[in-house]
Nucleic acid binder design. Sequence first.
DNA 1: GTTAGCACTCAACGTCATCGAGTGCTAACG
DNA 2: CGTTAGCACTCGATGACGTTGAGTGCTAAC
Lengths: 342, 342
Amino acid sequence: MQLDERKYRILQAIIDDYIMTAMPVGSRTISRKSGVGFSPATIRNEMSDLEELGYLAQPHTSAGRVPSYKAYRLYVDHLMKTSKLTSDERERMHEHLISRSKQVEGVIRSAANVLSDATKYTSVIVAPKLGTLRIKHVQLVPVAERTALMVIVTNAGIVKDAIIRVPEGLDADDLYGISRILTQRLADQPLEGVRQAFADLLRNAEQNRRLLGEALQVIEQRLEAGGDASDVIVGGSANLLEYPEYSDVNKARSFLSVLESKDTLRKLLGSQGSMEVSIRIGPENQVPELNDCSIVTASYRVGDHSTGTLGIIGPTRMNYNRVISVLDFMGRALSDVLSEYK
Amino acid sequence: MQLDERKYRILQAIIDDYIMTAMPVGSRTISRKSGVGFSPATIRNEMSDLEELGYLAQPHTSAGRVPSYKAYRLYVDHLMKTSKLTSDERERMHEHLISRSKQVEGVIRSAANVLSDATKYTSVIVAPKLGTLRIKHVQLVPVAERTALMVIVTNAGIVKDAIIRVPEGLDADDLYGISRILTQRLADQPLEGVRQAFADLLRNAEQNRRLLGEALQVIEQRLEAGGDASDVIVGGSANLLEYPEYSDVNKARSFLSVLESKDTLRKLLGSQGSMEVSIRIGPENQVPELNDCSIVTASYRVGDHSTGTLGIIGPTRMNYNRVISVLDFMGRALSDVLSEYK
DNA sequence: GTTAGCACTCAACGTCATCGAGTGCTAACG
DNA sequence: CGTTAGCACTCGATGACGTTGAGTGCTAAC
């Protein structure tokens, strides 16, 4: 059996309705509401076909139909009408975004809030992979006897810091000097290549070998850890509770637990590189707890090579059109704002 | 009517039971369970008295009794038996705490997780007030044409950064020089007094007046904003959903919304200075959404003058004993770990 | 091919009786 | 006189049961 024009129209009407109401959709509803001028009986026949094809399901015999994952997939790929945001909205979002743009992390945090406010779902933003950033500056600051804070500033304006031990007898001026050398040698190196650069440094360093060794270790640790919790930012985690699919406390809890596991989120969003919006519906995503959620992601750019990911997590019956528009816009806006720092 | 020994014992037994089960407690239960060897009838009489005194309440006539806020207050002040953590537990917590102690923010984040894991409630930690920290180092790092990143390192090892505009024509070396001067002049100033110090600098500065002005503005902004979202860290927000008092989705939602509002949390925890554990039960706290929660807080020290707050938010029937022990221990542990950086 | 009609299904809802945990009161007990 | 056994009473929780209504599938007529 093939899908003809009418089936498409009916399926679309069902999904549109279900997205709004979260209630199984009956033939009568479609017959009345949609522009398709057919009687309930006709619709029923079509619905029966659609069910057989795996696009619809019935919670129980005497209920209406509910779209399947397959239906959502078809919907986002072919049926959905996409719309642009009004310029008014764009403006408002952009304004919120730059309202505290003094710091990279602040911008990302605002972006998460803007996203979740605009969509009423939960937003997640992953900061750019550190490995692709370039070092701008390295500074060792004495904070105590034999202890220094190493601050690494990257080209994206992102600052990473770590406490390291330093050999005895180094005073502020020594550290200052070492910082100069480090900055000179490492400037414009991508963090990824830093191991090589450091090895060179070490080979030639007649002194302070231990200190440099420790510094290298710290930088590497940062890299392989894939960043710490602070580079996954979640916004609007309470929003999901608005939706009837989460009125079951257990579902809500397991959802919230996932949001607390930054590792899972980082894996979930992954960096898919392109600026294209990506959509994973229900079981298409790898995290079992989120198998009845959909995840829509886009990416943003910082500088030339680094990309981060921003995404929305919501029920499978989410308003894909809206979410895609918002993410698309915000991805660009975020890239613009953050690339000013470049 | 006065509370005699027996009434105390009975009240304590009721609260102990209610804390565990969250179910109204009947006379029979108390008669059987507690060491108080009296018949249900006697207990009933006493309970009736306790109710009249405002320590107990009945959800409905044929139900058991539930402790009132007044009862919890009495409980934590006089009845509760306090216990120490096992050394095993202390060790485990301490270990988790230092597991990623390379960064101040990392430590605080771990601490929040340890707290919520150990108590099964929600934890909140507020970083020290910036105003009381002292500047260790100021560094301007060029990130783009006419743009620099200003990094301020404090004595607590906390790093704050902000993008500022710089006048045209300043190259990396100029910024380096200016950083030196700034650091020289501002080192060991508390952030609070920085305005004065800066004013002096400005008066004498024959050049770069604009740049310094902007830098001052940024620092001040940081101060008056009371810090940004990143210095309030929440852990275990999903934990609360385990408890029957939050099986109502609306309650859960309003609770989670409060957790998202960092401003409210900051106000709620406030810095109460002393290392003493403070307990606010139900309506004793100022946030209406949390009027059926209790909030237990302690404080930790960074360096000599700065203090931050750590707290647990849970249902009024929380396990006060456990929570107090954990907070007390963690307050000290956190102080120790963070003061190593001093 | 479309639709009106109709019997059928089944969750949701309201009603009603039952059950039992818990109370308050009274009278008896040591 | 404090304590306790006994007892009638209250009231939420639970489950059985009938009703309602939205929705379906099938058949026959248009």
